[in-house]
């Protein structure tokens, strides 16, 4: 398994961010973990990182102001210019069939993950890369 350089987490749930950072660091899956509780801040950061895009992004569906789906449409314009696109996963505690279906059909998404995200699930994703 290759160790990733940078992982980006976007979620408004502080407890979740804390837990994810802890698991990723504990498993030594990557060098840098960036987290954003507001997707707009994340998008602004991506625009300023022409060479430093993360290798993997995990974004939550349910967030105030801009939700995961709205984030995706903004994100599309940023990554369309990139030659290698980061792996992108939608994360939610929703087990709503409609959300799962929509995520599976979305061309930008590599997968849909249901919370809680366990070490096993993370290992499976990082192993694929």
């Amino acid at each position: 398994m290759r160790k990733l350089a940078k992982v980006c987490l976007i979620d408004d749930d502080q407890i979740y961010l804390f837990a994810m950072r802890r698991i990723i660091q504990h498993l030594e899956l990557c060098d840098t973990v960036e987290d954003f509780s507001n997707p707009e801040t994340a998008l602004a950061a991506f625009r300023n990182w022409p060479d430093g895009m993360p290798d993997l992004i995990m974004v939550d569906i349910n967030m105030p102001v801009m939700d995961g789906w709205q984030f995706l449409s903004m994100y599309q314009t940023i990554v369309s210019k990139l030659s290698t696109k980061p792996a992108l996963y939608m994360v939610s505690s929703s087990i709503d069939e409609a959300d799962v279906e929509r995520a599976n059909l979305h061309p930008l998404l590599d997968g849909y993950l249901v919370k809680p995200i366990t070490a096993e699930k993370l290992l499976a994703i990082f192993g694929q890369d």
Partner: peptide, 20 residues
């Protein structure tokens, strides 16, 4: 929606914190 999302998100946080 509450049951699917909000309750589950708290439950998964509890689960993770307890395992830590």
């Amino acid at each position: 929606h509450i049951v699917s999302h909000n309750l589950r998100s708290h439950a998964s946080n509890l689960q993770m914190l307890i395992s830590f």
